[in-house]
């Protein structure tokens, strides 16, 4: 039996290393250690072996069994490795480009809007939205715009036909006309009418002017307005907000300047200039960036807030103008052409 075991091990020694595939391996494994395998056959002979020889022979069989198992394990590892290897194609060339689209991009106007909203959220402003189709009341009357103000003219503002009906845009009076809002200030009115002071909101959105499209004008563009209503709000607070916004946006070296101006819905009113010579394509000392002021008492009275109690400020600016300044873009039309060579620059 010892000789038989030796012969068996010698056979295994020569057969296993030459096995290439898993079926060959499984067949060989069955031949040696399967239920009808040769080792199993030898083990069955153990019963007829004299008792005194049993321990020695048993030891031999166990050793042979262990050696066979080692062959089996090694072969299985080798075949598995070969199988994995076979799953691979030729080595890659890392320098070849991926055929998949490389990245998506936010539109620069979105980037600027979101950056402004982030800056303003830090000081407690909540972002609100309102309809782009508005009525004369929300766009003009409530903002203290005189009845014969040029902004109301059909020459400057887009109107909808008198029979137009909008199911989800409320009118103040039944016979007022629908129009495309000329500023996002209408959202301030809707917010004040809906809510209660104190209020601290920022309303970004699309606005419309009946204007010739050129490098700096567009039939629709975007604004962003802030409104803060509380007790004891002062001009100094307003200046602090503007300083904060533009220092956050453009760096600490940025200065802002107020120039008194006229808007119907604020008093006093200011235009805001920026001094930011470190920006690209800025060659003037001061650049006009927006308008602001203390909410006019008339506006408060109109929305039912007691002007003796409530004070507030409002600030508005054009997002295209800001984006042009930030990125050094010189033509507003690029925002609306969506040339991929333009869009991909803002990844």
């Amino acid at each position: 039996m010892q000789d038989q075991l030796s012969a068996l091990l010698a056979k295994a020694q020569s057969e296993f290393p030459s096995l290439k595939t898993r079926p060959e391996f499984e067949a060989a494994k069955a031949r040696f250690v399967g239920p009808n395998g040769e080792l199993t056959g030898l083990m069955k002979q153990m019963g007829s072996v004299p008792k005194e020889q049993k321990p020695a022979l048993g030891k031999l069989i166990n050793e042979a069994k262990a050696q066979l198992q080692a062959h089996i394990d090694a072969t299985l590892r080798r075949i598995e490795a070969a199988e994995l290897q076979a799953q691979l194609g030729p080595a890659i060339d890392p320098s070849l480009p991926s055929p998949d689209p490389d990245f998506g991009t936010y539109h620069p106007l979105t980037l600027v809007r979101e950056e402004m909203c982030r800056i303003l959220r830090k000081v407690g402003f909540t972002v609100v939205e309102g309809p782009e189709v508005e009525t004369e009341y929300y766009c003009f009357d409530a903002l203290n715009t005189p009845a014969d103000h040029p902004a109301r003219d059909a020459q400057d503002t887009f109107y909808l036909p008198t029979n137009a009906r909008f199911g989800n845009i409320s009118k103040k009076t039944p016979d007022e006309k629908y129009l495309l809002r000329t500023h996002t200030s209408s959202v301030q009115i809707r917010t004040m009418l809906k809510g209660e002071p104190p209020i601290r909101i920022v309303s970004p959105g699309r606005v419309y002017r009946r204007d010739t499209t050129d490098a700096t004008h567009s039939a629709n563009f975007h604004q962003l307005e802030c409104l803060y209503v509380d007790k004891n709000v002062t001009v100094r607070d307003l200046k602090a907000l503007l300083d904060y916004i533009f220092a956050s946006l453009l760096g600490k070296e940025t200065k802002t300047r107020f120039r008194t101006h006229y808007f119907g819905y604020t008093e006093p009113s200011f235009e805001v200039d920026l001094s930011a010579k470190h920006l690209p394509k800025v060659n003037k000392e001061w650049i006009e960036i927006g308008g602001c002021g203390m909410v006019d008492p008339t506006v408060f009275a109109d929305v039912g807030y007691d002007p003796e109690v409530w004070t507030g400020y409002a600030f508005g600016m054009g997002l295209e103008r800001l984006a042009m300044l930030l990125y050094g873009i010189d033509d507003i039309r690029y925002f609306y052409q969506n040339d991929l060579r333009f869009l991909r620059q803002f990844a």
Binding site: R121, G124, V128, D237, A240, L241
Partner: peptide, 22 residues
Amino acid sequence: TEKIPASRVLAPGLVGDDDAVV
């Protein structure tokens, strides 16, 4: 207007949620 003194933004907690549309 250039003499308006600089100051910090005072922001008492009024934080609401951004509009659902936003």
